[in-house]
Design a protein around this nucleic acid. Structure first.
Lengths: 195, 195
DNA sequence: ACAGAACGCTACGAGACCGTATCGGCGCAT
DNA sequence: ATGCGCCGATACGGTCTCGTAGCGTTCTGT
């Protein structure tokens, strides 16, 4: 493992960290270079030696913050795969700083094309992850061939996003299971325990 | 109907309208008093004669923009009531300016306590509307007594909110029907036509 | 040790925005 | 008509923020 880091890299990382922290706390618009300098302990001058503008700094900070996709599970059971998939994504992207940034990022993405691409790419990435799980189930015959995968993903992801962003509550594993079981019930996919 | 309006009232309304327009376009943070003055044709001085600060102006503008709750339907069919309920709310709050404001408002509400109360009140209002429809169905025996109404509302509202705010797509009546039917299928509530 | 690169500090110009002061003009009621 | 209240226009002080300049200091590789 390459743990060597030049001074330049350490400084750069400190700035990125302070930026994500600030964006999570006060949002994109209220994030200032001066405050980033203060938080990171890096002089404002030096920040501008690394990043051309506040705009690209925020974009790079968010980019560096992109959540790690959990390993795709393939247990052979659609229900288990979906629960593990959404549970993992929830932990990776809703808990912690990324979750605190989401609303502000989505808002800023409406006006900033660069951020817009980034946010959309992250959302697509998450969707694709769930889509793969579902398509594997279709291939196995666990779901009918004509199922609308797009709507299905929306039905699954929607309640979780809503709980996090609108209700501002934690997305519990119980909720994930309830969502998955409710949606799959329509397709008569076996649940382990009948309620 | 009281259509009389003093000059003062007309001016006030012009300012509120310009404010909501601007918030919908550029968000809360980038909305400036100077631009509101320019858009509304009302002098900045006069704006401050009506509203103490930009903060209270935005709050009042959003408040004046609060969506009208559609009349609660009671057809005797949970499915029809839910579809009419969510379809009506979608049109009332997602189409038009209010929909464009939502992300920015929710973001700003994280830091502004006044806006926070307002946004939360609106969200609660929407939830209560759907909750009533469901509780009536429970009373009729159309749903089991021990159903978790809170989770149920989340399952219904989530995919619609997600479609609007994250995917930035229109919430069609087809989607509303698909969501309602999928969620109700778990409770074996009759659908008119099997797919 | 030494040269060059990277960093910190202070200061600065420019622009945006807030909120206020001042004064002149228009509308409305009596 | 006239007095009062409301409005418009300009200008201003103050603050915040961006991004840059200049210069001394520290670090890094050799």
């Amino acid at each position: 493992m390459e743990t060597t880091s030049t001074r330049s890299e350490r400084v750069r990382q400190a700035v990125l960290d302070a930026t994500t922290d600030l964006v999570a706390e006060v949002g994109v618009e209220r994030t200032t270079i001066d405050e980033i300098a203060h938080r990171s302990g890096v002089a404002k001058t030096t920040i501008y030696r690394h990043f051309a503008s506040k705009q690209v700094l925020v974009v790079e900070a968010v980019h560096a913050c992109t959540f790690i996709i959990p390993a795709v599970t393939d247990s052979g059971s659609l229900r288990d795969d979906l629960i593990s998939c959404f549970s993992g994504m929830t932990k990776a992207s809703y808990d912690g700083r990324l979750g605190d940034m989401m609303l502000s990022l989505m808002d800023a993405a409406q006006r900033d094309p660069e951020l817009g691409r980034l946010v959309r790419a992250q959302a697509d990435q998450r969707r694709r992850y769930a889509t793969e799980v579902i398509e594997r189930a279709v291939a196995r015959g666990e779901l009918p061939d004509d199922v609308d995968v797009d709507v299905l993903v929306t039905l699954l992801a929607g309640p979780l996003v809503y709980t996090k962003l609108v209700r501002r509550q934690r997305v519990t594993d119980e909720l994930v299971a309830a969502v998955v079981d409710t949606v799959l019930a329509r397709y008569a996919v076996n649940r382990p325990v009948a309620s």
